[in-house]
Every structure is written in C-alpha cells, then in structure tokens.
C-alpha cells in the first residue's frame, strides 16, 4: 500500500516537474526561433499534380503580428505582395493593380496550392499561452537527441487539440511536429532540418509540411537567407506599400 502511494506521489511529482520542464523548453525554443524582426528570402516548393513549382519570396516581419511578403519568381507571381496586419490579410497583384482583402472563410483556402492555408500563417498566439505541455519521452532523430513534448490545448478556440513536438535537446530547435485532431487522429506533420547557426541562434532552414490525410509529397519551405534585428521602416506595413 505504502509503496503504491509513494509511486503515485512520485509520478505526480514527475509529471509536474516535466510540465515545468516542457514550458521551459518551449520558452527557450521561442527565444531561439522568434525575434523582434527579421528579413528573409525563401523558396517554397509545391508538389502539384502535374509539376512542382518553386516560388521565391522576400519577407519582412516584425514580431508575430506584422509581415510583408513580396514574391520574386516565377514570372507569373512576380510582384505579387501580401500584407498581414494582426488578423487581416491583403494581397496585391500587379497585373490587375488591385489590392484584395482575404477574409473570413477565404483564409481557410490553400496558399498558392500548397499544403498550408492562409490561416496557418495567421495564428500568432504564443504556443505556451494556448497549450499545456509535458515531456513524454526522448528520441534520436538524424543523430540528434530530442525531447518529445506533448501539447494539449488549454483554450478551446484552437485549430489543433493536441500536438507533439520533437525538440533538439542542445539547440532548442524543433525537428519534427505532429498536429492531431481531437480524436487523436494525426492530421499534419512538419519536418524541420538543416539547422544552421545564424547571428548566434540555431535556426532550421528547411521545413516540410505534409497533410497526412492527403496524398502527395507535401510542401517544402526553404530559407535562402535570413537576417535578424534589422531596421525595417514602418511604412512597409501599410497598404500603400503594396502598390509600390
């Protein structure tokens, strides 16, 4: 009896301890991954039914709330710009000279045919604010030791009820993430790789998004170059900048 009680107590203690650990881990990841501002060039490889497309773009972002993206190639998308302010999104297309607001249910549409929706880019709440987390194990991925974190939503208005994250134990970079439905069904898997050190922080340069229910190769997102803590003029985050 006594031993059982001790066992239960220690398990409780362990869980609390690991919960704290998990939050700590996530905070460190947060510090590593996010920054006051950043400018990056990236290419997105979308594997379509017929062809794979590579779309390159340059993005200016301040915090999580403001971002401005200009598409550089291919020719058809060149000059298209996208502005996100809080939870609003505008797209400018040079061929039509129009600024169009994407709102409501349009946000659930796929972004340029990728496995990402506009909405996926819009949720800018801190992960520790909306999820309770705990460490549930460890695993080695590509020779890197990782903690496996299980995140369970603590607020109800969240897209994914549970998540699993594999965090590099040394670099505090997520190497894999899985998103689950309330029923526990796996919905999406993100794989992060090519972790480089930039301005003193570890940063994954390649991310692969995959909707696991759908066939296909998923969408690759590759950072070509990234700079942190730059001075970005405020006027970039205005609708007027879209037309320039």
């Amino acid at each position: 009896m006594k031993t059982i009680l001790i066992l239960i107590l220690s398990t409780c203690f362990l869980i609390t301890a690991s919960a704290q650990d998990a939050d700590n881990i996530l905070n460190r990841v947060e510090r590593n991954m996010s920054s006051d501002n950043r400018i990056f060039e990236s290419s997105m490889i979308i594997h379509g039914n017929r062809v794979s497309r590579i779309i390159t773009s340059r993005t200016y972002a301040v915090g999580d709330k403001q971002s401005f993206t200009e598409y550089l190639s291919p020719a058809r998308e060149q000059g298209t710009k996208m502005l996100k302010l809080e939870n609003q999104l505008w797209i400018y297309s040079p061929s039509t000279d129009r600024t169009i607001q994407i709102s409501g249910h349009m946000l659930r549409q796929s972004l340029m045919g990728s496995d990402l929706s506009y909405e996926d880019m819009m949720d800018d709440r801190k992960i520790t604010e909306i999820y309770d987390s705990k460490v549930v194990g460890t695993e080695t991925i590509d020779g890197r030791n990782t903690w496996i974190l299980e995140l369970t939503a603590k607020v109800s208005d969240v897209a994914y009820h549970t998540r699993k994250m594999w965090i590099d134990t040394e670099r505090y970079v997520p190497l894999r993430e899985e998103l689950f439905a309330k029923s526990g069904q796996l919905l999406k898997r993100t794989t992060l790789s090519e972790v480089n050190q930039i301005d003193g922080r570890w940063f994954p340069m390649k991310v692969v998004y995959k909707d696991v229910l759908k066939q296909g190769l998923g969408t690759e997102f590759i950072i070509i170059s990234v700079k942190f803590n730059q001075s970005i003029p405020d006027h970039i985050f205005t609708k007027a900048a879209l037309k320039q």
Binding site: D157, A181, L187
Partner: peptide, 13 residues
Amino acid sequence: IQWRDNQGTFDAA
C-alpha cells in the same frame, strides 16, 4: 472524414 468543431478545432474520425 475531418471537420472542425464549434470552436474551430480540427477533428477527424
């Protein structure tokens, strides 16, 4: 099938 409950959370079964 996949759906979103009244809070917008994805669910599947």
